[in-house]
């Protein structure tokens, strides 16, 4: 707006301000919450920093000490020097991947049923899922142990996988049900209307649209499985997963290699998350 129009306008009360005179309104900035947030994040990051730092510390009799004794890459160069560590690590990864896959394969149809249909017994299914999420790990693990013992089942790889799938189904169904409900039934009906059978409609419309949800559900299941200690400790038999292996060192001098594995996993996970964030930001 030019100055002329400003002056020509009929004015009531105080005259129009010249643009240069208009005072800048500064938003109130309070530092309390940001500082609190930083404090919390520091608290959360302390053990992670400790893990990374101690993985480079010179150990005493191949056990980490909290006292800094000098920088070394020894543990990283001899990553598999501690007995059983590689096996435990890869067992964990394999079980996490397998349980994630199986629970998605079982959970996706179930989520479809729960989000797309009204049927008798739906309430029972929902309560089972709710109970599965809300049962304490110690109860789930111990009752699974009692159950397998009573059937004379040999504990090991299989029992771990079975139980991991059992607790992961609930997370997968909950995640996918939310996605499917959010997507609504309209698009599937439109596919049917245009001549797609339910199966074709599922593969051409539903699946591409819930794919991100499926990935998220798989990753959640993977994470829950790979980090589980309590439930696994009941049904592992002689099989050792990484959390069980790490727990074995508790209070008796931990091999630095455990921290190296932790650090490597952490760095890889952070890089992947960062990459994912970048990709998401670039997409419109």
């Amino acid at each position: 707006m030019s100055d002329q129009t400003l002056t020509r306008r009929p004015t009531f009360g105080p005259g129009p301000l010249h643009p240069d005179d208009i005072p800048e309104v500064k938003p109130r900035r309070k530092l309390g919450l940001p500082l609190f947030y930083c404090g919390i994040v520091t608290f959360l990051l302390i053990p992670i920093v400790a893990m990374i730092v101690y993985s480079f510390n010179v150990p005493t009799r191949n056990a980490i000490t909290p006292v800094w004794q000098g920088f070394t890459l020894d543990a990283y160069l001899n990553l598999f020097a501690v007995q059983g560590i590689a096996e435990a690590f890869f067992t964990s990864v394999a079980i996490a991947a397998a349980s994630g896959l199986v629970s998605v394969l079982i959970g996706l149809p179930m989520a479809l049923a729960l989000s797309r249909y009204r049927f008798r017994g739906k309430g029972v299914l929902n309560s089972m899922i709710f109970l599965d999420i809300s049962a304490p790990s110690i109860v789930v693990g111990s009752s699974a142990l009692a159950f397998f013992l009573s059937l004379n089942f040999t504990m090991g790889w299989t029992t771990i996988l079975i139980v991991h799938v059992a607790f992961n189904i609930a997370y997968v169904v909950t995640t996918l049900r939310a996605r499917l409900s959010g997507m609504g039934q309209n698009l599937e009906q439109a596919a049917g209307d245009l001549g797609a059978s339910p199966l074709v409609g599922f593969f051409t419309v539903t699946l591409p649209l819930v794919a991100p949800g499926i990935v998220a559900a798989f990753l959640l299941a993977f994470a829950m499985s790979i980090d589980d200690y309590v439930i696994t400790s009941f049904v592992n038999g002689s099989t050792e997963t990484f959390p069980l292996y790490a727990y074995g060192f508790t209070k008796k001098g931990m091999a630095p290699q455990v921290l190296c594995f932790g650090t490597i996993v952490f760095v890889v996970a952070v890089c992947l998350a960062f990459l994912n964030g970048l990709l998401n930001r670039r997409r419109p």
């Binding site: 302390i46 053990p47 992670i48 400790a50 893990m51 101690y54 994470a223 790979i226 980090d227 200690y229 990484f242 959390p243 790490a246 727990y247 060192f249 508790t250 931990m254 455990v258 921290l259 932790g262 996993v265 952490f266 996970a269 952070v270 998350a273």
Partner: peptide
């Protein structure tokens, strides 16, 4: 969550 729960507690 990117670090094992056992390792964090041990730290």
């Amino acid at each position: 969550f990117f670090v094992s729960f056992i390792i964090r507690t041990d730290m």
